[in-house]
Structure formats: C-alpha cells, structure tokens
Nucleic acid binder design. Structure first.
Lengths: 222, 222
DNA sequence: TGTACATCAGTGAACGCGCGTTCACTGATGTAC
DNA sequence: TGTACATCAGTGAACGCGCGTTCACTGATGTAC
C-alpha cells in the first residue's frame, strides 16, 4: 500500500558451483510460509519464489514439481520435530519426568509450528515417497522406550505393552493439541499442559506423580 | 473418456415459489463432494454448480459468497453427526455400554465421512458465524451426561469432574480417528475400535467392563 | 598469460486452467384488474 | 374469461486473478589449451 515495502529480497546470484544453496532457501522459505499461513494448501510455488526473490521457473532446477517441494518441507519438519522432542526428554532425571517432558515437547512443537504440524499429519502429504512412515515409526519407538523406562523404574505400575500405550498416548496428544490449534475460540477450561499431563497419567496408569516441575506450561497458548 | 458420461444432470427449473429447493440441492451436493474428495479446500462453487447442473451465478441467489456455503455445509454436518451419536447411545442398557456406543458412533461417523469430519474440526471453517461452538458445546454436554450416568451407576469409580473427563475423552477420540484417517499407510497394530474402547476405559477409569457386545467394530476400516 | 568454450545459475514471456464474482439478460408463471 | 404486468428462477458472457509448468534465452565464470 505505501511505497516503502522492501520488495523481494534483492538476491545476489549464487556463485558457480553453489547453486545448491537455493534449494535450502526454497525449503526454508516454504516452511516459513506454511508456518505463517498455517496451511499447506495456500502454499504456492510462485509465492515461494517471490519471497526469496527468484523467478518461479528456477525452482524447477531443484524440484521436479510442487509436490516434491512439499515432501522436502515435510522431511525437514519431521527432523526438527524429532530433535525438539529428544532435546526435551534428555536432561530429565526420573524416567517419568522424561516421559512428561517428551509429551510436553510434542505439544509445544505443535503450538509453535501449527502449519507444519498440521501438514505433517494431514492427508495432504504427497504419498509416493512420504517420510511420514519411517519418521512416525521412529517417534513411536522413542515414546515406547520412554514408557518402558518408566515401567522398569516402577513409576508405571502396569505391565501392558509399552508399544500399545505409546500409540494410545500419541493419538491422545495429537487430538488434544489439534483441537486447541483448530478451535481456539472454544472455551477450553484448562490450560493445555494440564490436560496433557492428566492424559499421560491416566493413560499409562502412573503410580507416583513426579515431584519435580509439574505444571509450568512453558509457553502455554492464550 | 468415452462419450457415455451422463453430463450435468439435465435439471428442470424449479416451479415458481420453489426456488428455495435449490439451496438444499447446493448444500447436499457440496457435502457429497467434500465426502468424495475428503477435502474442503478442493470444493469450489463452480464445481458444485456443475454437479447439480446449474450455472455458477445461480448459487448467489442463495449464498452471498462461497464461505457462507461452507458454513451451511458444516452446519448440516454437525446436525447429522449429533443425530448419529444420539441414535447410537440411546438403545443401550447399562450406562457404560451407552458411553462406549456413543464413542464408537463418534468414530464411525468420522470413518464414514472423512471429508466432513476433517472440515468440521479444521481451522478452515469460516469464523464469523461458525456453528462449531454451540454444536461442540452441546456434544460435550451429551458426553459429559453419559459419563455422569456411569458414575451414578457405579460403573465408573472415580468422582472426577465428568466435564473434564469428557474433554480428555473427546480429544483422545479425535486423535485416534484422525490419525487413522490421515495416515492409512501407517502399520496400525490394532483395529481402531479396540483402541477406542481401551482409551475410554483407561481415561475414565472404569471399574467393571460391560459384558455385552464388546468388540464388534461395526464397520471397521481395513 | 590469453583466449575460446562449456557449464552453471538463473530469467522473461507465454501457455492454458479453474477460480470467485459481476452484470445485464430471458423466459416462464402466477396475479391483479 | 382475458390480458397486462411483476416477479421468480435462473442463464451466458465476461472480468481479473494466481496458479503450475514449459520454453528458449542470457550473462557470468570457471577451465582446458
């Protein structure tokens, strides 16, 4: 509207042999845009090109079509997501604290990156070489291990299959966080992280509640 | 590809004074299309018009724009959804059987209408006069009542706030069913309805498991 | 050290598409007189 | 019973838009001789 908009980035062309850098710029810009609009469907190849100050056709030197770009974005998101969860559950002392921290980190990532999170678990991920499967299995394995550690430790009384518990837990967290993201106008009675803790404890049947940092919703919504 | 496609419906113009019938046709066609594509984003006003054999502008006599059409669709879906859940939980004898039947019906609706279900709880519902709020609150109230009946009956031991339990349960079911819908290629170890029952029982802390029809996944996927 | 050349990192124009929306219109039909 | 007219239920053409994708190209730069 004014004349003072910065315009598209004034790019300098990459040096010879370094054309591959554009690929990273593309993926990163696309991820940002999904983050901002909260929506894959509104991501367009042309808009990505515009944002990084490049012509639309130059994207085709790195991706054969727009679906491959989307797959690349989702791959990057899964990597970030896994890193965030692992980071969160590492420093914890007791296994049950680590499990809760991991679940909190799961939800925090979704709150911080609604667009990517929605995308990763949507039916919009282009199928053929989707990284959802291996990444999802790995995530579930990590969660299973965290639950098993609680069982070994005695913090979880039940001897139910930890893989099964992990699956129920995953689904429950997914539902909790998605509803909050998608229906922000709903009159949610509790802060999200209270519900997350409560759901974890109920589903895995904890015996003792960890004494440590119980309910500080690191950056709770609202 | 052949020449034998039926073409667009060969409509007869509504009689004078009955133009309102087109409105229903529009909403119903739009709902069907969301059901088929599984996706609101791919719904277009022109495609709806094409399907019912009418010109695109004639939709504007019933909806001021495409967003109002979407809101009308979501309203209809919520009504159907509530009816299906109420129908399912009515005939049950014991309250706990009614609760389980209600939860099963919740998931069954989602399985049968993936597109509408996803839409209803997505951030794509146009905001201003979205019917999500009242319908969601009513649904939660019904679930709360069902849980409270179990507590009164003694089937649920805990005296925890039934409204709170209903919320956790809703979220968990939402997550279970959405993950199955959106990641069908994931190696789900159990049938969905087993997980649903299990989640209900764990979350609300049932004392006795109902003897009746336990695990017939009325029309389970796969 | 100089030069021809291949390659690299892009660009600009153009294509056909489906979309939401607006506009002026048409023809059938019920109604008032 | 007949007729003029208002209204109703739509239609057809057109608009401008952003999109994905293709095509032939350009100009800088590293490299072989």
């Amino acid at each position: 509207m004014g004349g003072e908009q910065t315009g598209p980035a004034l790019r300098v062309r990459n040096r010879r042999g370094e054309g591959g850098q554009l690929r990273e710029e593309i993926v990163s810009a696309a991820t940002q845009m999904i983050n901002e609009t909260g929506d894959v469907e509104r991501l367009s190849l042309r808009a990505v090109a515009r944002r990084i100050g490049v012509s639309a056709p130059s994207i085709y030197q790195h991706f054969p079509d727009v679906d491959h770009l989307k797959v690349a974005v989702v791959e990057g998101c899964f990597a970030q997501f896994a890193a965030a969860r692992d980071r969160a559950s590492r420093p914890a002392g007791e296994p049950i604290a680590a499990l809760l921290a991991r679940c909190r980190a799961y939800c925090q990532f979704a709150l911080d990156h609604p667009g990517p999170y929605r995308f990763m678990f949507s039916h919009h991920v282009p199928r053929p070489d989707a990284p959802t499967l291996p990444a999802g299995v790995a995530a579930l394995n990590a969660l299973t291990a965290s639950i098993r550690a609680c069982q070994d430790d005695g913090a979880i009384a039940t001897t139910d299959d930890p893989g099964h518990l992990a699956l129920l837990l995953w689904a429950a967290l997914h539902g909790l966080v998605l509803l909050r993201l998608n229906l922000p106008q709903f009159p949610w009675p509790e802060p999200l992280f209270d519900d997350v803790h409560d759901t974890v404890l109920r589903l895995v049947g904890t015996r003792r509640v960890p004494p440590g940092p119980r309910l500080e919703p690191s950056r709770s919504p609202r």
